[in-house]
Design a protein around this nucleic acid. Structure first.
Lengths: 228, 228
DNA sequence: GTCCCTAAGTGGTCGCTGTCAACATCGGGC
DNA sequence: GCCCGATGTTGACAGCGACCACTTAGGGAC
C-alpha cells in the first residue's frame, strides 16, 4: 500500500500486483470519501504509478468499479456466512443473515450503493460479468439459507418448491435491500428509534416468510441486536 | 423546450425561464441516457444558451440534480395520488399505491436512482433542502394512506398509534423500495415471472401490514395488474 | 420619460479528468 | 542470448465543472 520513497526512488519499474493495489486503493478512497467520484488518476497516485498504468489492467473506469463492486458482494457474503456459522434454526439463521446484510450496507453506504446503484449498467442495462457473478453467488447464499429452512416441508426439486423459494428469496432480499437504503438515506426516523423499527421490520418479514414456508417458525424471535 | 432557430438567430438575450428549461432538459437527458453523467454544458447547449448561463440559476451541478430529484418525487407522488383517486378500501388503496410506486421507479430507473442514490448527500450525509421537502411530502402521502386505513381501530394521536403507523410505513416503503431496485437491476428472475413474483411480494407485504393494523383486511386481494 | 440597479447571459480561463498513442522496461520461453 | 509480450511511462487532446470580468436588458423609482 505504501511506497518507500525515503531513498532516491528505488521503486522498481514493475509494481508487482498493481491490479490488486488499484482495487484496494479504490475501496479505501470509496470508503473514506463515500463517493464514487474519485479519479483513476488519484488511485494511480496512491499506488505510486503513472496516471495511465491502471489502464493496463482495466479498460475503463467502469471496469474498475465493477471489480470493486464484486469485492463488495464478496465482503457482504462473508459477513453473512460468518454471522450464521454457529446457528441452526432456520429462523435464527435468516435473522442473523438479515442483520449482517443491513449492517454491511449501513457501514459502507457508498460501497453498497455502488453495488446496486446502476453506475455499472451498460446501454442494454446489463451488469459486467465479474460483478454479476459475485452478485449471483451472494444471492445463492441467501437462497440456500431459505432452501435449507424449507427442508422437510417441501419435496425438493419440484417446480412448486422452486417457485416458493424464489418468492421467499424476493421477499427477504427486497425487504432488507429497501430497509438498508432507507436507513442509509435517513429517510426513516427518528434516529433514536431506528434500531427498534429495524427489528420490527425484520420480525414482520420473517413472519411473512413463515406464511410461505411453514418450516420457518412464526412468532416473534427476540435476539440480541447486532454488535458493531 | 425548443428554440426557434429557423431565422437569423432572433433568440432574445434573455431566455425567459431558463431555470425551468434547464431542469426539463436535465430530465430529458437523464431519461434518454439513463445516466447522471451528462454535463451542464450539454444542458446549456440544448437550451440554446452559453455554457455558463445555468450557473446563474444553480450554484453547481449538485444543486441542479437536487431540483431534478425533487421533480422526481413530485412525479411519483402524483402517480400514487392518481392511482388511488377512486379507491376506498384501505387495502385496495395501498395496493394501488404500491403498484404505482414500483411502476414509476421501473419506468425511469435513472431518475429513481438519482432520488435515492446518494449522489446528492453532502459530507454530513444530508440531502439538499428542496429535495428533502419533496421526499417528505411523498412520505406523508403514504403515511396518510396507512393512517386512514388505521382509522377506527386506533385511537388517533396517541403515541402507540404513531409508533404502529411508523412501523407500517417503514415496512411498506422499504419493501417497495427494495423490490423496485431489484426489478430495475434484473436481480430477480426469470424475467417472464417478474409480474407474478412482484404481486406475490405485494400481497405478502399487505398481509404483514394487516398483522400490524387490523383495519387493513388480510387475505389475498386479486386486482388487475397495472396497465403501463 | 429618464435613469440606474440588478438579475441574467456571454466569453475566457484554469485545473482536472478519461482516454489515446508512442515509447521504455522487464522477465520468461525458445 | 534474443526476442516478444506484458507492464509501466510520458505526452497529448478534448471535454468538463467552476470561477472571473464583462455586457445586456428590462423594470421600478423618481
Amino acid at each position: 500500500m505504501t511506497q518507500d520513497i525515503s531513498t532516491t526512488d528505488q521503486r522498481p519499474y514493475h509494481h508487482g500486483d498493481l491490479q490488486r493495489a488499484i482495487v484496494d486503493a479504490a475501496i479505501d478512497v470509496l470508503s473514506e470519501s463515500q463517493s464514487t467520484e474519485f479519479s483513476l488518476r488519484e488511485l494511480a497516485r496512491r499506488a505510486g504509478v503513472s496516471h495511465n498504468a491502471p489502464y493496463k489492467h482495466f479498460a475503463d473506469k467502469r471496469e474498475l468499479l465493477a471489480a470493486v463492486s464484486a469485492v463488495g458482494f464478496e465482503l457482504l457474503a462473508k459477513r453473512m456466512t460468518d454471522a450464521t456459522k454457529e446457528l441452526n434454526g432456520p429462523r435464527e439463521r435468516l435473522a442473523a443473515m438479515a442483520r449482517a446484510y443491513v449492517c454491511g450496507g449501513v457501514n459502507n453506504p457508498a460501497l453498497y450503493r455502488l453495488m446496486f446503484g446502476g453506475y455499472l449498467m451498460d446501454q442494454d442495462n446489463r451488469r459486467p460479468a465479474i460483478e454479476r457473478n459475485a452478485a449471483e453467488n451472494m444471492k445463492e447464499l441467501v437462497a440456500g439459507a431459505i432452501s435449507d429452512g424449507a427442508l422437510g416441508c417441501f419435496i425438493p426439486d419440484t417446480e412448486e418448491n422452486e417457485r416458493k423459494i424464489n418468492g421467499a428469496l424476493l421477499i427477504f432480499w427486497s425487504q432488507m435491500h429497501g430497509l438498508t437504503l432507507l436507513l442509509v438515506d435517513r429517510l426513516v426516523g427518528p434516529g433514536d428509534k431506528m434500531e427498534a423499527l429495524t427489528e420490527g421490520v425484520l420480525q414482520g418479514m420473517l413472519d411473512g416468510l413463515a406464511n410461505c414456508i411453514p418450516a420457518i417458525p412464526a412468532g416473534v424471535w427476540v435476539g440480541p441486536p447486532p454488535v458493531e
